[in-house]
């Protein structure tokens, strides 16, 4: 038996919106300590990893580990039934064939229920090695979204360079070439801060269209954390207050 109730259901709605363009069918792993999922995009360039702790739920019960195979596209359609102020409860029996999703609005007394059919997914679970990232950049999520969006209109690829003084996003395309450079900024206004933690400089190239898809999660968190290592995929991380973390991994491009 699994049951989890989230008071701020909007968070779950936003999570589904933030991953639906990247992954299609996903195994959701339920454990007594929380909910997690890991899935690659169809071209095996990016990987989504979500971890939600039971502590963030108003009520959480999972007697055993369970795997719930879900079509994210269909889950997104069901989530559209939810009002932004709804509480969301997820329920599944042992050996379940469907996931029951209940939306409740205590103010308007409206309740919506949907039984989403589960599917069997044969997906590969990848082992993500523990990595000591040599550059970690914490940046306002809205600002990072904007930078990626605008640069994508100029080039498909961005080169991210870090050093102890700044992080630089540079593009080169038919239109021309240029860069956005952000220095370390720990101003009093927290939302303006850009925090650089660089032990070793990194220079890598990435497909901007993936970054734009990841940035849908910017509504979940005021800050985006970029973790870089010269030999590893980029991690774009969004912390979800009191509940967990949504991470996207993106394999770098190599210059021709």
């Amino acid at each position: 038996m699994f049951e989890a109730k989230l008071t701020e259901g909007l968070i779950l709605k936003k999570i589904v919106e933030s991953i639906k363009d990247i992954v299609t069918d996903v195994n959701i792993d339920i454990s007594p300590s929380g909910i997690s999922l890991q899935a690659m995009d169809s071209s095996h360039v990016a990987l989504v990893s979500l971890n939600l702790s039971m502590d963030g739920f108003e009520h959480y019960r999972a007697d055993t580990n369970m795997v719930l195979g879900v079509s994210i596209a269909n889950l997104a359609k069901v989530m559209k039934l939810a009002d932004n102020n709804d509480q969301i409860t997820l329920q599944a029996d042992q050996e379940a064939t469907h996931l029951k999703i209940i939306f409740e609005n205590p103010k308007t007394e409206r309740t919506t229920e949907f039984n989403l059919n589960l599917i069997t997914i044969d997906s590969e679970h990848l082992a993500i090695p523990e990595t000591e990232y040599s550059s970690v950049v914490t940046i306002n999520s809205g600002e990072f979204s904007k930078i990626c969006k605008e640069l994508f209109s100029l080039s498909e690829t961005v080169q991210i360079t870090t050093n102890t003084d700044y992080v630089q996003f540079s593009v080169e395309g038919e239109v021309g070439s240029g860069q956005v450079r952000l220095g370390h900024n720990d101003s009093e206004k927290k939302e303006d801060q850009t925090i650089l933690e660089v032990s070793e400089s990194v220079q890598q190239q990435f497909a901007i269209r993936y970054l734009n898809m990841f940035n849908k999660a910017s509504t979940l968190s005021s800050f985006t954390r970029l973790c870089l290592h010269q030999e590893q995929p980029l991690v774009v991380e969004f912390k979800i207050d009191n509940l967990g973390v949504l991470k996207y991994f993106l394999a770098p491009k190599i210059s021709d």
Partner: peptide
């Protein structure tokens, strides 16, 4: 996509 590496190159199967 030219020059695009696969995520599977970095993360092995469990």
């Amino acid at each position: 996509m030219s020059g695009q590496q696969s995520i599977m190159k970095f993360f092995g199967s469990k």
